[in-house]
Design a protein around this nucleic acid. Sequence first.
DNA 1: TTCAAAAAGTGACAAAAGTTACAGTCCGCC
DNA 2: GGCGGACTGTAACTTTTGTCACTTTTTGAA
Lengths: 208, 208
Amino acid sequence: MPEQLKKVFPSFSNELIQDIKANEVIKDFSAGEIIMRTGQYIKNTILVLKGAIKVYREDDDGGEFFMYYLQPGQACALSMVCATKNEKSQIMAKVVDDAEVVMVPLSLMDKWMMQHRSWYEFVVGTYRNRFEEVLEVIDSIAFRAMDERLEFYLKRQVEATGSKELKLSHQEIGSDLNTSREVISRLLKKMEQRGLVVLHRNQIEILM
Amino acid sequence: MPEQLKKVFPSFSNELIQDIKANEVIKDFSAGEIIMRTGQYIKNTILVLKGAIKVYREDDDGGEFFMYYLQPGQACALSMVCATKNEKSQIMAKVVDDAEVVMVPLSLMDKWMMQHRSWYEFVVGTYRNRFEEVLEVIDSIAFRAMDERLEFYLKRQVEATGSKELKLSHQEIGSDLNTSREVISRLLKKMEQRGLVVLHRNQIEILM
DNA sequence: TTCAAAAAGTGACAAAAGTTACAGTCCGCC
DNA sequence: GGCGGACTGTAACTTTTGTCACTTTTTGAA
């Protein structure tokens, strides 16, 4: 297990790995499970060892808006700055590929920040990367119309999954982008006509 | 001057204040000036002593999308995690009320994080607050139509300026929300009819 | 094999937002 | 007091997006 940690988080120092090992709880989640709900109290920082997790922002009427993926080697930025306070989660995290995650008690965060240079750098880097990713999401919704937002969304899925065969239904894309299935179907058809994608049932082949 | 720092940043320890004092450069900016441009290299962390600064996200075609205010006692979150790397600014910051800011060289960031508990807590808190604010901005554009986005925008202006008399033209609101002046005029008129605002030239009186 | 549910295609229409065009109003300045 | 520029109001129109209704296709389970 420490070998796996070291492999997935190569920047961590050996002492840090030891410390994590001494305090870790490893949990398995299967696809479809919800790791964290909006409003729930955050007690742990989450480090992803395996699988894929989609992070959403929710509104009051049940809408879900996709923000980013958590992949192996990454961590939930928000859970890292909740400090000791009784902070509630501002996001919802859903497992899409069977996942294995390390849960680190929040109480250790501050200590490790001071003790472990590699942890400090990881946290700061995580924060910066997430912030920048969220800014790009803002760009797409603030400046772009739905057709471009869809392209942006598909490109991110390709990046995140490392595959050009996306296993997604029009319905799922629609709810990730907070629009309707019909709109997505319409736009995908146009993209197919432009030669950017090939459509199959439950699968989209990206040619871009 | 150290008194002013202590007053505006009451959580800072005396040692931290001394350290800042030893390294600070204080700069004045007048309304309309741009403190930071998109793509510019970040060399300093910015602490606001006085005035008001609006932070924008820009797109390639000259569009500007308002994200949040920087007020006295606050700092630019993004400039705090740029670390030593040659990071480029992802945002644009425009002074709207004559401002006085402390510029702290980025090179000191890491050191202070380790040395000064109160700096560490300030940075982490800044990060959390900005992230949460940005998430709310995402909510407004992802889930809400323009009429509700406008209300959200006006409420934030009231909060930020501490006044219910907003000195804003329809044009400025339109470009902050990345829409046209006409749309804003239309929606404001409707809000006036609903009794939520009173419209004047270059000024909106908020009754909510 | 059949049947129900999920997925996808599509036309028709409604609503929201963006665009164009122009008129009226207020303000500071000469 | 008059002039030019910035600000605001508004009608008419287009485009984009959302919604409704219905069909067809595919898949998996009984």
